[in-house]
Computed example of a mutant assay.
Amino acid sequence: MVQKKVGVTGFGMGGALAIAGSIRFPPSFDAIVSFHGAPPRQDDPSYASAPVQAHFGELDDFVGFSDVKTAKELEENFKESEYPYEVHIYPGKGHAFMDSMILPDEDDAEVQLAWSRFKEWMTRYLYSDMIAVKL
């Protein structure tokens, strides 16, 4: 029997909850991708129980949640985790820049780059038997 793997992605609060879920309920997921959201400070990212990839816009001004300073703090904390991590900051992008993925502006190079990184991450950690949950 093939064991199924679970990947979780979220946007904004969903992204923050995906990371927080791997901290509070280990081992619950096999791969996580967060767009525009970091968990609350009481959830120490070094305790993440799965590989985490996170995406932030350089111009995001949601202080303490998804601004550049928060993204860099998140990345610093991941260094203490035993799991792989990536934190990407996209120049010239604000909060929720991935929303353009479903709008007519789909050809945006940064959105396409983030989307390709997402697909590569989930493929790497989940293989072909993926069950994905969007929060």
Rank of each mutant, 00 (worst) to 15 (best):
T9L: 15
G15T: 07
E75G: 12
N77V: 01
G21R: 04
G7V: 09
D44G: 01
A38V: 06
E58I: 06
H95L: 02
P27I: 02
P26W: 00
Y90S: 00
K79V: 06
G21H: 11
D44I: 04
F35R: 02
M130W: 01
R117S: 06
A38Y: 02
W121D: 05
I131A: 01
T9P: 00
D108R: 02
A114Q: 01
E82V: 08
Q3H: 10
S28D: 02
F35L: 07
G57L: 10
H88F: 15
M98E: 03
I89W: 00
E80D: 10
P84D: 15
L103M: 13
E58Y: 06
H95R: 03
A96F: 13
V52Q: 03
R117L: 14
V33Q: 03
P51N: 05
M13P: 00
V68K: 14
M122V: 08
E86T: 04
G12Y: 04
Y47C: 04
P26N: 02
A16G: 14
Q3T: 11
D129R: 12
L135M: 10
E58L: 06
V8D: 09
Q42V: 08
D61V: 00
Y127F: 10
V133C: 12
A54N: 07
M122K: 08
A109M: 02
A16S: 15
Q53G: 04
R117D: 01
Q53K: 11
Y127S: 09
S81R: 10
S128P: 00
A16D: 13
A18E: 08
P27G: 14
D43H: 15
F29K: 03
A54M: 04
S81M: 07
F118W: 12
G10A: 11
L113M: 11
G92P: 09
G37H: 06
P27V: 05
L17Q: 13
P26I: 01
M122S: 03
H95Q: 08
P39C: 09
G12C: 15
A38K: 05
D30P: 08
F65V: 13
L126E: 07
D30M: 03
V68N: 01
F97L: 07
L135H: 01
P39D: 14
P104E: 10
M13T: 12
Y85I: 07
F62A: 14
A109P: 14
L17H: 04
P39F: 09
P39S: 11
S100E: 11
Y90Q: 07
W115D: 13
F97M: 01
T9N: 00
D105I: 09
A114V: 04
P27Y: 09
A48M: 06
K134T: 10
Y125M: 01
V133N: 06
P26G: 12
P27M: 04
Q42T: 06
M98Y: 06
F25A: 10
D30F: 01
K79C: 03
F65G: 01
D60T: 08
S34C: 12
E58W: 06
H95I: 01
P104W: 06
P104M: 04
M98I: 14
R117A: 08
S28C: 13
D108H: 08
A114W: 11
A132N: 11
V2F: 11
D129W: 03
S81Q: 10
A109L: 09
N77P: 00
F78R: 09
A71Q: 03
